[in-house]
């Protein structure tokens, strides 16, 4: 299995842009007839969020597997609070 660092670098920004698109379209903007949206789409919107979450988790899992295959250990540089 080959490792393409460029593809991975592009993946996270793409996920970020997609999650922002979903967030702003579903959660922002003028509400003209709120009862219509909530009553019809409640369950479907949750499913859509789940799909996005699954997609994000899949990307993280793929990255971890590729790091493992290369023998890299995840490095945490965030300072302790």
């Amino acid at each position: 299995m080959t490792h393409d660092p460029d593809a991975l670098e592009e993946d996270e920004p793409a996920q970020l842009i997609l999650s922002d698109l979903v967030n702003r379209v579903l959660d922002k903007g003028v509400v003209i007839g709120s009862n219509i949206t909530i009553s019809i789409a409640d369950v479907d919107l949750i499913q859509l969020d789940l799909r996005l979450l699954i997609s994000s988790v899949a990307a993280l899992t793929r990255r971890a597997e590729e790091q493992k295959a290369r023998g890299d250990l995840p490095v945490r540089t965030r300072p302790r609070p």
Partner: peptide, 22 residues
């Protein structure tokens, strides 16, 4: 001005009536 996703009305008159309220 963006309108939130899935704002659906019975017809144009219904949509216009709601829009004029806001």
């Amino acid at each position: 001005a963006a309108v939130r996703f899935r704002q659906i009305f019975a017809d144009d008159d219904d949509a216009c009536r709601h829009i004029k309220e806001r």
